[in-house]
Computed example of a mutant assay.
Amino acid sequence: MGSIFTKIVKGEIPCYKIAEDENYFAFLDINPNARGHTLCIPKKETDKLLELDEDAYLGLMAFSRKVGMALERSVDCKRVGMAVVGLEVPHVHVHLIPLNDMKEMTFQHKVSMTEEEFRKLAAKIREQL
């Protein structure tokens, strides 16, 4: 049985997709710390960041950088923060979080968005890729 992220990659669970290539996938977090909070994952399910082989690790970071740059051009923020925590889902994921205040990195501060806001924002970020 795959993780919730594997199910998203396979299309079994809907998401607000931002980007995808042969090895990696990015989508908006549905419980965002800030407007535009995006998750970047390897398609191959791996539990821990340091379990990735070096090529997969570097590939995930390069993919995350590309997505983060598009995110920074799409959302009004001072910078895009990055976090890899990995306790809540056993599938490596990089959090890209538009930041204007440190509280947006705490994972205790959440914002609400409508389905329409998610759709429009995902499209806006995709346009910047």
Rank of each mutant, 00 (worst) to 15 (best):
M1E: 12
M1I: 13
G2T: 12
I4E: 13
T6H: 13
T6D: 14
V9F: 14
V9L: 12
E12V: 08
E12W: 10
I13R: 03
I13C: 07
I13W: 05
P14H: 09
P14V: 03
C15V: 06
Y16N: 04
E20I: 02
D21N: 15
D21K: 03
E22F: 07
N23G: 05
N23Y: 02
Y24G: 02
F25P: 07
F25V: 08
F25Y: 14
F27L: 06
L28P: 07
L28E: 02
L28W: 05
L28Y: 01
I30W: 02
N31S: 05
P32K: 07
N33V: 09
A34V: 08
G36T: 00
H37L: 01
H37N: 02
T38Q: 08
T38L: 04
T38C: 04
C40A: 04
C40S: 03
I41F: 00
P42E: 09
K43H: 15
K44G: 03
K44D: 11
E45R: 08
D47A: 15
D47I: 12
D47C: 09
K48D: 14
K48T: 12
L49T: 01
E51R: 07
E51G: 11
L52Y: 02
L52F: 04
D53L: 00
E54L: 12
E54I: 12
E54T: 14
Y57C: 01
L58S: 11
G59S: 00
L60M: 03
A62C: 09
A62R: 15
A62T: 15
A62G: 13
F63Y: 04
S64P: 03
R65H: 15
K66Y: 07
V67D: 06
L71N: 02
R73M: 12
S74N: 10
V75I: 13
C77H: 13
R79D: 06
V80S: 06
V80M: 08
G81N: 12
M82Q: 11
V84A: 15
G86Y: 11
L87K: 12
L87I: 14
V89T: 03
V89H: 10
V89E: 10
P90N: 02
P90M: 04
H91F: 00
H91I: 00
V92L: 01
V92P: 00
H93M: 03
H95C: 00
H95E: 03
H95P: 01
L96S: 05
L96A: 04
I97G: 05
L99P: 05
L99N: 12
N100W: 08
M102H: 11
T106P: 09
T106Y: 14
T106W: 15
F107E: 05
E115Q: 11
E116N: 06
F118V: 00
K120T: 10
K120E: 14
K120D: 11
L121F: 11
L121W: 05
L121V: 11
A122C: 02
A123N: 01
A123F: 06
I125K: 03
R126Y: 04
E127H: 00
Q128K: 15
L129R: 07
